[in-house]
Design a protein around this nucleic acid. Structure first.
Lengths: 212, 212
DNA sequence: TAATTATTAGATTGACTACTCTAACAAATA
DNA sequence: TATTTGTTAGAGTAGTCAATCTAATAATTA
């Protein structure tokens, strides 16, 4: 008998995923036919459906791939001496990804699909929760080292940092004048003012008073 | 002969638009068939296509409707005595809209469609440019009154405020724990620290130094 | 009232959809 | 070598899609 070669199998799956990513970024999930993915991947529908049972399974695999990549990125982040600087580095990396039109189109498409299809929604929500958990852990560690203002609640801070990342992708989608490589300075200023510990106790408490 | 009654005509169009909004929010633009819109609107396809030549024209009309509403909102904003407070009010209103699942689904769907269809993309970009122009004008006026830090460039500031709004909708899409009515305080803190004039000149310049 | 035209219904069309089926081919084991 | 089984192709299926067409009806004006 013959056994399945896991490496070859995975490589073949990846060919399909890469083709699907290109198509979904170009025309969206529902705007792409399985025939188009077949053409991009250079294979027959019989072959494609040998590796994925449904079109839905393809986008689910893409979301899972995404999760892996984000998790890998965070694994290295905690070793940095200055955690606030590490956070800025993470945000710069997010800007770099957003600058890639394929990546940003895909991210937006997945977010939209998450609202329509609750199976995708659950996967995306899990990814997001994982990222926010890493971010709030980073904030907590930075609190201990005095690198981020303890007035910032770790969970709330993580949420708004995540919102800012979502916002970057939103800008790419609707604002052709938003150039990631020129917007880094303002983003750093925003994050610095939002998160950095105040120089003296008085100014921190007066900020808090203003938001009442 | 018989002339077209503009009021009746507009009302009938609105029935279709409202039905389409409900459908698009539920299942997305490409996930919704014209037959579904007909069912929701309670009319035949012949009738629907009497008022809109294509399905695309329907979503285009929805985007235009959106533009009107945003413009109306900004018209009143400039008369406020405290422009920073007015901005916070605007952001609170955005959070209120985002809390409506129909509105937020639709906004995300339109953003995703803007990346796929350049005709929609152009409409959405025009809306966004209009909103950012209003925001930067508000920042400039606030500069003159000392209500917003002059270290914030009006255009860059407007871009990142817009990014924050996009981010709110992103949170709604992927983070079920994001409750708009509980996140206002952190948002106000972020905006206050980002935009408010510093209490003394020294701290403003030291912020600037940190982002180098 | 007669003529005109806006409005509406609903069956229909041809293209397209995700996916299946059958069968051939290729590789690896016994 | 013989056999098993993973891999591939491509025609085919049942159904859906946006949009059209024909024709009937309702409202307005002359």
């Amino acid at each position: 008998m013959r056994k399945i070669d896991p490496e070859k199998h995975a490589a073949r799956r990846q060919v399909i995923l890469d083709a699907a990513i290109a198509c979904f970024a170009r025309k969206g999930f529902h705007g792409t036919s399985t025939a188009e993915i077949c053409a991009e991947a250079g294979m027959s529908p019989g072959n494609l459906f040998h590796y994925f049972p449904t079109k839905h399974a393809i986008i689910a695999a893409i979301v899972e791939e995404e999760r892996q990549e984000t998790a890998d990125f965070f694994r290295e982040l905690h070793e940095a001496p200055d955690l606030f600087a590490a956070l800025l580095g993470f945000m710069d990396a997010a800007m770099g990804l957003a600058a890639d039109p394929v990546y940003s189109s895909l991210a937006l498409e997945i977010a939209a699909e998450a609202m329509r299809d609750e199976r995708i929604g659950a996967l995306v929500a899990a990814n997001d929760a994982e990222m926010r958990a890493a971010l709030s852990a980073l904030i907590r560690a930075a609190h201990a080292r005095g690198q981020i203002d303890t007035a910032i609640d770790p969970e709330a801070g993580a949420r708004w940092i995540a919102a800012l990342i979502d916002g970057i992708f939103g800008r790419i989608a609707v604002d052709p004048g938003f150039k990631p490589d020129q917007e880094g300075a303002t983003m750093h200023l925003l994050l610095t003012r939002f998160l950095r510990p105040p120089r003296d106790a008085a100014s921190a408490s007066s900020d808090a008073a203003e938001i009442g």
